[in-house]
Write a protein that binds this DNA or RNA. Structure first.
Lengths: 114, 114
DNA sequence: GTGTCTACTATACATTTTGATAGTAGTATA
DNA sequence: TATACTACTATCAAAATGTATAGTAGACAC
């Protein structure tokens, strides 16, 4: 990398990604959705330890940021489904890079920060 | 993606990455180091708003996780330098993926989560 | 009309993370 | 010897994040 201003310009977009997917349950949710789990209760059951409050909140964040969308399954049914938007799917590349690095790291290093 | 167990196996390595670089100042620090800024005071000056307490803590986390290393510049000098290890450098790919996605996202969407 | 399921919301609390401020030990400089 | 610089550490407060628990409103099943 050349000069520090150029370096610095990389920081905000990278932090955006972290803001979007960095809270405790977002990765779990996005991966579940990418794996054909769509309804609130299904997510609640698949994601061990999550409370409805957190699930609801994280879903809302993701929806607000257009990574997922919420649709009624059929009118008057009180059932909804969540699914990844195109933006959400496009995170695949980021996840793949993290997965590759993370697996490699686990094999080589691994000390917990806290 | 095929079955949910396979999906789930992706989660821990991805969360490792987030644990390692997800706290408030880690990206700033790693990018500064990748850009030839090496000493405590230099980092303190370049990274706007960071307190010595946080800088110290984040450097220690990163060192503990072998993403950076700390070396004395010369013996008895009370000056040190921090630099990326090979593991630290290997994050480049992850950062590149996040940067690309982040820039694209900024151009297309962008609503703040909180 | 009672119970059950879905999809949540509300309230309060606990924990974690970050910030503000001041201080310290060692070396170098005038 | 006094001042300043490097590289931190300590203490406490504030803010952000997450948890526990209970409750609600609509639909459906018997």
């Amino acid at each position: 990398m050349k000069n520090h201003e150029e370096c610095k310009s990389h920081i905000p977009p990278i932090k955006d990604v972290l803001d979007l997917i960095g809270s405790k349950w977002k990765v779990d949710i996005i991966i579940a959705l990418s794996c054909d789990i769509h309804r609130f209760n299904e997510l609640e059951r698949q994601i061990e330890g999550i409370s409805p409050r957190m699930l609801s909140k994280e879903l809302k964040d993701l929806e607000l940021n257009r990574l997922i969308q919420r649709d009624e399954i059929s009118p008057f049914s009180n059932t909804f489904k969540y699914s990844l938007t195109e933006h959400g799917w496009s995170l695949r590349e980021v996840f793949r890079a993290m997965l590759t690095w993370g697996i490699d790291y686990r094999n080589k290093v691994m000390v917990k920060t806290n």
